[in-house]
Measured scan of single mutants.
Amino acid sequence: MAEQVALSRTQVCGILREELFQGDAFHQSDTHIFIIMGASGDLAKKKIYPTIWWLFRDGLLPENTFIVGYARSRLTVADIRKQSEPFFKATPEEKLKLEDFFARNSYVAGQYDDAASYQRLNSHMNALHLGSQANRLFYLALPPTVYEAVTKNIHESCMSQIGWNRIIVEKPFGRDLQSSDRLSNHISSLFREDQIYRIDHYLGKEMVQNLMVLRFANRIFGPIWNRDNIACVILTFKEPFGTEGRGGYFDEFGIIRDVMQNHLLQMLCLVAMEKPASTNSDDVRDEKVKVLKCISEVQANNVVLGQYVGNPDGEGEATKGYLDDPTVPRGSTTATFAAVVLYVENERWDGVPFILRCGKALNERKAEVRLQFHDVAGDIFHQQCKRNELVIRVQPNEAVYTKMMTKKPGMFFNPEESELDLTYGNRYKNVKLPDAYERLILDVFCGSQMHFVRSDELREAWRIFTPLLHQIELEKPKPIPYIYGSRGPTEADELMKRVGFQYEGTYKWVNP
């Protein structure tokens, strides 16, 4: 592979701008107003304001973009700056750019259920340069409990009458099928589907988006991507930290609602779906819905739930269990780990287990898709061969690698495990991989909904998990304890083995 010439960040961002501006969906010269509902909250200060700053800094926003914060707290732009700027990672050389960014910011205080507050917000936006005809993007960085009041008031008082209007809704989209349907029906009564952007930030990850290209742009994968060759698929999300004093919020939802029903299920769809007619948003989402419709409700015998306990040999936070978090209700049975087996009941995947695993306070930070292939028929190497695996590593250190057998150097035919490896950090030294939120917010500006969740996708996802969630809430089974920093409950490994996964433990990928 030829040595790549190092590029400056300015040059890299210039390439990104060229890609972005050559499309006809990006209205570079139009006025846009980006409204952050819930501007005083954690999500706004840690993710949304920093993301908008990065896009502005790199010249990736339309030229005439204004940012308006809205929340109940009586704040000023200076207050917003004070709480969000520490997350910007701005350099001293960017000081003038930073001043320009905050000059485009404003803030309006108001209630979430008060019509007069929204009329005041609308008047404020109209007073901005060309504000009355601007395109408006409303980001709901809010708890779902206020979605209905907020969307109703936005629709009645704050819509642009000339430009387009788009609304970005953060997960969780309800707690179960019934609450999700209620919320979807409410929002759909106010906005068209092409105006609604239900954001799952995992769909903005580079390697998640790469799944489609790997599958449908490489001839070698087509013939082997089926039940005849693939023994099982494992989708993993692991965090090495616990709730760390923020367990009160987590306890309301648990690990299945927080990660599995959305992030992991979306990745499953991209692995299992048929080739779409095109890369058009609805063509892709149509195929994802077909996959979900082929999955039956989760069966309790295919589920393992766990909850982390303190590690007596650990240090600091590792010595504390979930129930030691003062914000967690006493005696909570909320799971911090889950392993679930699903089956896609169609011709391509009949009988292939899709194993979804996620948890907190585990032994490493990792998100990946792992396809394990069947054993080689007619073994001539005296059971020395391990199964081939194709691994798409989402985070950290984005990579695609194939675990395969090669001859060990020497005189004899002794096979050993090795890999074919594409590590993004080595291959793409001159490429700026956008943060997931950067990519998705740019998608909203461009009107691309491919990486957002459609209402029928959402409904099918909740259909699969709601009976299990209701059973857990009714019966309150005690989750299996696992030690902070471990791989999780051993019962999860036993479940995976029972459905056909072979864990060798003899080879570990190392970032080159």
Rank of each mutant, 00 (worst) to 15 (best):
F216V: 03
D24G: 15
G163L: 03
S117E: 12
D24E: 11
E193K: 04
L7W: 05
P143I: 10
E93S: 11
D79Q: 15
F56R: 02
L128N: 08
R198K: 03
G41P: 04
G245F: 09
G38W: 00
Q209H: 05
F138L: 05
D251E: 06
I168W: 02
S106E: 09
Q119V: 13
S117R: 09
W53T: 01
S8I: 09
N153T: 08
G254D: 02
E18G: 14
S123I: 13
S184R: 02
D194T: 12
F138Q: 02
A103V: 08
S84H: 10
I154A: 07
I255M: 12
H124Y: 13
E156W: 12
E170M: 03
G247R: 05
I230Q: 00
D228V: 08
A116Y: 13
N210A: 08
L214R: 05
I36K: 04
F21R: 15
I255D: 00
S188V: 09
F66W: 12
N165C: 15
S40L: 04
A115V: 15
F237E: 01
F173W: 10
D200K: 03
R182F: 11
T145Q: 07
M207C: 05
L177H: 05
L183S: 01
I15P: 06
H27W: 12
T65K: 04
A39V: 04
F241G: 06
K238Q: 00
L61K: 02
L203N: 05
S117T: 10
L121N: 03
V169C: 06
I52C: 09
S188E: 12
D79Y: 07
E18K: 15
V146M: 11
F21E: 10
F237N: 01
L98P: 01
S73D: 00
M125D: 00
T236D: 09
I256S: 02
I167W: 02
E206W: 07
Q133Y: 13
F101T: 02
I199N: 07
K89E: 15
I15K: 11
I36E: 01
A127P: 06
N229M: 07
R9K: 11
S8C: 06
G242H: 03
V208S: 05
I230N: 05
D228S: 12
K97E: 09
I80Y: 06
S84L: 11
W53G: 00
M125F: 13
G69S: 06
R215P: 02
T236S: 13
D200A: 01
T31A: 10
R120K: 14
T76W: 07
L137H: 02
E193D: 02
R72P: 02
G23D: 15
N153E: 13
H201Q: 04
G222C: 14
M212V: 04
V146Y: 02
L183I: 14
S189F: 09
K95M: 15
I52L: 09
A109S: 13
N218A: 02
D58F: 08
S184K: 04
E206F: 09
E193Y: 01
K97A: 10
F138C: 03
Y70P: 02
N185M: 12
L177G: 08
G69D: 04
F56I: 06
D181C: 12
R166M: 04
P223K: 09
F173G: 00
R219P: 10
N105F: 13
I67C: 08
I162R: 15
S29W: 12
D251W: 01
I234K: 11
G254S: 07
P223G: 08
L211M: 15
L137Y: 08
L75F: 12
E170F: 02
Q209S: 12
L98F: 07
K238T: 01
A103G: 12
A231Y: 05
K95Q: 13
A134D: 10
K45H: 14
D30I: 11
P50I: 01
T76L: 09
F102Q: 06
R74T: 09
G247Q: 05
F221M: 15
T65E: 00
I199A: 02
L7D: 14
H129A: 12
L96T: 14
A78W: 12
N185D: 11
I167C: 14
V108R: 06
D58V: 09
L137W: 05
Y249C: 02
E156A: 15
I234W: 04
M207A: 03
I187M: 13
I35L: 06
V68K: 03
K47T: 02
L96K: 07
G14L: 09
C158I: 06
P172C: 04
E85H: 07
W53Q: 02
S40W: 04
P240N: 14
L60K: 07
Y249D: 05
M159Q: 14
Q133H: 13
I162Y: 14
S160N: 14
D58C: 12
I199W: 03
N210T: 09
T10S: 15
I80C: 07
A71P: 03
H201F: 04
W53C: 01
D24P: 02
I255H: 04
Q11W: 09
F216M: 02
H129I: 13
R215T: 04
S189W: 07
R17Y: 10
I167N: 01
N153Q: 14
N218Y: 01
W225S: 02
N126Y: 11
F241S: 04
S180W: 01
A116K: 11
V68Y: 05
D113R: 10
G242P: 04
N210M: 03
R74I: 15
T31G: 11
Q161Y: 15
L137F: 12
Q178R: 14
K82E: 11
I256N: 05
D113N: 09
I234R: 14
D200Y: 01
G38K: 03
